[in-house]
C-alpha cells in the first residue's frame, strides 16, 4: 500500500499542488510582498515587473499579494463549508444507515429534495437575501454539502453494518451510536476523505462564483472571484488581470481533484486500471 502511493502520479501531483496552496495561504497570514490592500495610484494597472511580479490592479494594489491573501480567504471559506456539510451530513447518514426503515427513508427523501435545488443558484439566493459576506457564503455552500455527505455516508455505512463483526458487537449489547463510532465510521473514513476532497474543490469554485457576483468575502479583503470581477472592467487595457486569479482558482481545484482521484485509486485498485 505504502509503495503504491508513490507510484500514483496524480496523487503526488495533487498533494504537491494542494500543499503549495495551503502553504501560500498560511504564508499570506504573516507575509505578502506588499500589503494586499495597499493602494498606489501612481502605479495603476502596471504590467508584471521585478517590483510587482504579477503587476498591479486598477487601484495600484499588488496582484501577487492579493492572490496570496485570496488563497487564504478562499481556502478558509471552502474548508468551513465542507466542515459544516460533513459535520451534519455524516451523523445524519450514519443514523440513517443504523436505523433502517422510516428514518432512513426520511433522510434519503430529504436528500433527494435538496438535490432538486441547483446548489449554486440557491447559494446565490441565500447569500443575497441573508446579506453578502464570508459567513453566509460558508453557510450557503455548506448547506448543500450536507445531503452529499449524508448520502455517501449512508451508502458506505450500510455495507459495514452487514458485516459479521458488527453483528457480533450488536450481540454483545453495544448500542447503535457506539457501533457507528467504533466500527462503522473508521471503516468508511477513507471514502469520506475522498468525498471531502471533491467537495472542497467544488466549494472553492462556488466561493469564487459567489465572490465574482459580489456575494462572498467583502472588500477590502481580497478574493479571487472579486478580482476577476474587477478585472473584467479593465479587460481591454489590462487583460492579464483577468488571467492570474483564474489560474489560481484552476490550480487549487486541479490540485484537489488530482488528490481525490489519487486517493480513490489507492482505495480501489480495481478502478486504477480504468483510469
Amino acid at each position: 500500500m505504502k509503495g503504491s502511493a508513490w507510484r500514483s502520479p496524480s496523487l503526488l501531483a495533487g498533494a504537491a499542488i494542494t500543499a503549495v496552496m495551503v502553504a501560500v495561504a498560511l504564508l499570506s497570514l504573516v507575509w505578502t510582498p506588499y500589503r494586499p490592500t495597499a493602494m498606489d495610484f501612481v502605479h495603476r494597472l502596471a504590467p508584471p515587473s521585478a517590483v510587482h511580479p504579477l503587476g498591479t490592479d486598477s487601484f495600484g494594489r499588488d496582484v501577487l499579494s492579493m492572490i496570496m491573501a485570496g488563497a487564504q480567504s478562499s481556502l478558509t471559506v471552502a474548508l468551513i463549508a465542507v466542515a459544516v456539510g460533513a459535520g451534519l451530513g455524516i451523523p445524519l447518514g450514519a443514523l440513517a444507515a443504523a436505523r433502517a426503515g422510516l428514518l432512513d427513508d426520511l433522510v434519503m427523501r430529504g436528500c433527494d429534495l435538496a438535490f432538486a435545488f441547483p446548489a449554486l443558484l440557491t447559494a446565490v439566493m441565500i447569500t443575497a437575501l441573508a446579506g453578502p459576506g464570508a459567513g453566509n457564503a460558508m453557510l450557503a455552500i455548506g448547506i448543500f454539502n450536507i445531503p452529499v455527505f449524508a448520502r455517501v455516508t449512508r451508502g458506505a455505512a450500510r455495507g459495514v453494518w452487514a458485516r459479521e463483526y458488527v453483528l457480533a458487537a450488536r450481540a454483545a449489547g453495544r448500542g447503535d451510536a457506539a457501533i457507528s463510532v467504533v466500527h462503522v465510521l473508521p471503516n468508511i473514513a477513507a471514502v469520506l476523505m475522498v468525498q471531502a476532497t471533491i467537495q472542497f474543490a467544488l466549494a472553492i469554485v462556488a466561493d469564487a462564483g459567489l465572490s465574482y457576483v459580489g456575494l462572498g468575502v467583502q472588500p477590502p479583503q481580497p478574493s479571487w472571484g472579486r478580482m476577476l470581477n474587477e478585472a473584467q472592467t479593465f479587460i481591454w487595457r489590462a487583460p492579464l488581470l483577468a488571467i492570474f486569479p483564474g489560474l489560481a482558482i484552476m490550480l487549487a481545484v486541479l490540485g484537489l481533484n488530482l488528490l481525490g482521484d489519487g486517493l480513490q485509486d489507492l482505495l480501489d485498485p480495481r478502478l486504477r486500471r480504468a483510469r
Binding site: 474543490a201 469554485v205 469564487a208 462564483g209 465574482y212 476577476l228 478585472a231 473584467q232 479587460i235 483577468a242 488571467i243 486569479p245 483564474g246 482558482i249 484552476m250 490550480l251 481545484v253 486541479l254 481533484n257 488530482l258
Partner: peptide, 15 residues
C-alpha cells in the same frame, strides 16, 4: 479533461 474540469465557467467566459 482534467484541467477542463478545474476551470470555473465564469473564468472560461472571461478567457
Amino acid at each position: 479533461a482534467q484541467v477542463g474540469v478545474a476551470i470555473p465557467n465564469f473564468w472560461l467566459g472571461l478567457l
